[in-house]
């Protein structure tokens, strides 16, 4: 559906995107992950025809964005980082304008009404966009991308600056849209891609770092699990006892955070669930386990791993050549 090959974009002397290649299959929701300034927006801007690539090709539905831009753009709905809204228009006027702009042919009122139902814009249909809250503006931006029923949707950080409830709403909406559209979703929030995406492409400093199924990437990187255990018992003995449990790699004391229990950071071996042996060991000693939580793997963790892997590989390759 979307094919990006050897895409490179140079701004002056900096390479914003450096030889990036990936594909998105029909019906897939792809998470496009990277820290700020990694080249996500640039890639998306090239894909939508807003910028031109220095080299490389972008094809949407088999149509090259450079060779046949109008045809390719018809297949794409794009929500840029900042929703492109005219503040002095009402939602209705704005969507009517988008409809005309995209030169749609199906029945206008019905089509726009359907979109408003999907993104829940009914309440504000006749209000000025400038007076809407940020969450609603974001929805108008999404509605704009949906006009014309494009097969590919590209969302650039759609949940930035929204409150938690709005974030959940937008995520649900994207998941729902994913049933009928191919979606690229850029973000720098890991739980977001875990919640929504089938596949993750990670880029850093313009270079492709990973391109994998969501579960594969998370488990591959998250090989060893960390958890925080709150245990009531003598500190040194607990550390010793837990250290001896099969499947636990290391135990360290985090300190006293409650009145009676002590918190420990427990790291298990790769791909081992150490929670049960942990519990039985503590139970047999008569030390109550009053709390146990898994540590969420953060984007930083993934990054540090992926980037350091990349460096290692590069070194190995260099070593091989020598």
């Amino acid at each position: 559906m979307i094919e990006i090959e050897h895409l490179t974009k140079v701004f002056g002397t900096t390479k914003a995107v450096d030889d990036v290649t990936f594909r998105v299959e029909e019906g897939e929701i792809m998470g496009f992950l990277g820290p700020n300034g990694a080249g996500k927006s640039t890639t998306m801007n090239i894909l939508t025809g807003y910028l031109s690539a220095t080299s490389g090709t972008c094809r949407v539905n088999g149509v090259d964005i450079l060779e046949n831009p109008l045809e390719a753009k018809r297949n794409i709905g794009f929500l840029p980082e900042l929703p492109p809204l005219y503040m002095e228009m009402t939602v209705k006027e704005y969507l009517d304008f988008i409809y005309d702009l995209k030169g749609c042919t199906f029945p206008k009122t019905q089509h726009i009404k359907e979109i408003c139902d999907v993104v829940k814009l009914g309440d504000v249909y006749n209000r000025l966009i400038g007076n809407l809250s940020k969450g609603y503006k974001q929805r108008v931006g999404i509605a704009q991308a949906l006009v014309g029923n494009p097969r590919v949707l590209i969302f650039d950080e759609p949940t930035v600056g929204l409150d938690p409830k709005q974030i959940i709403d937008i995520r649900n909406l994207i998941r729902m849209l994913g049933r009928e559209h191919t979606i690229i979703l850029s973000t720098h929030i890991l739980p977001e891609v875990q919640a929504v995406c089938d596949r993750i492409v990670v880029i850093n400093k313009g270079k492709l770092v990973a391109n994998e199924k969501t579960e594969d990437l998370v488990t591959a990187v998250d090989g060893s699990r960390k958890m925080i255990a709150k245990i009531v018992g003598p500190e040194e003995e607990v550390v010793k006892a837990l250290g001896a449990v099969a499947g636990i790699r290391s135990v360290s004391v985090l300190g006293k955070r409650d009145t009676d229990s002590i918190s420990y950071l427990v790291e298990s071996e790769d791909r081992v669930d150490a929670r049960k042996p942990l519990f039985y060991t503590l139970a047999s000693k008569g030390w109550p386990l009053v709390g146990l939580e898994g540590m969420e793997l953060s984007l930083e963790d993934i990054f540090i791993r992926l980037v350091s892997d990349q460096k290692k590989n590069a070194r190995n390759r260099k070593g091989g050549e020598n």
Partner: peptide, 14 residues
């Protein structure tokens, strides 16, 4: 300034 340019330039309009 208000970035609607992005909308116009990514729409199927020459």
């Amino acid at each position: 300034r208000i970035k609607t340019e992005q909308l116009l330039l990514t729409a199927p309009v020459s």
